[in-house]
């Protein structure tokens, strides 16, 4: 069985990243935007692991970074969802554009 070349992982990550960007930039629902961010973060994680596996030479920096990214993503999701919930309570909507008067 031939080994999967690294470029496939990179394609996958790129596709995930672009989908994530689309989610962040184009979706109006706050939850979708957050999901877009998660996708972008995970695309990065894939890159980390792929590079670590192929060119890392046993160096664990890449996987450790991925673990950190996951941790941060969890924290960020917790805070962001809390904000989204309180915005929803105020505005009865989860549409990010409805919160534009926060500009000050």
């Amino acid at each position: 069985m031939t080994e999967v070349p690294i470029v496939h992982y990179l394609y996958l990550a790129a596709v995930l990243f672009v989908i994530g960007i689309f989610g962040v930039l184009a979706r109006k629902n706050a939850i979708s935007v957050l999901m877009g961010i998660e996708l972008m973060l995970n695309a990065v994680n894939i890159n980390y692991l792929a590079f670590a596996k192929y060119w890392g030479g046993g160096n664990l920096t890449g996987p450790v970074f991925a673990v950190f990214v996951i941790t941060i993503a969890a924290a960020e999701a917790a805070v962001a969802l809390a904000i989204v919930i309180s915005i929803y309570r105020q505005l009865k909507s989860a549409n990010v554009d409805d919160a534009h008067n926060l500009r000050g």
Binding site: I21, V24, L25, V96, D97, A99, H100, L102, R103, G104
Partner: peptide, 14 residues
Amino acid sequence: TQTGYIQNYAWVIF
């Protein structure tokens, strides 16, 4: 430039 529409900011960043 400060519209309050969060996705505008995101656009600028990207």
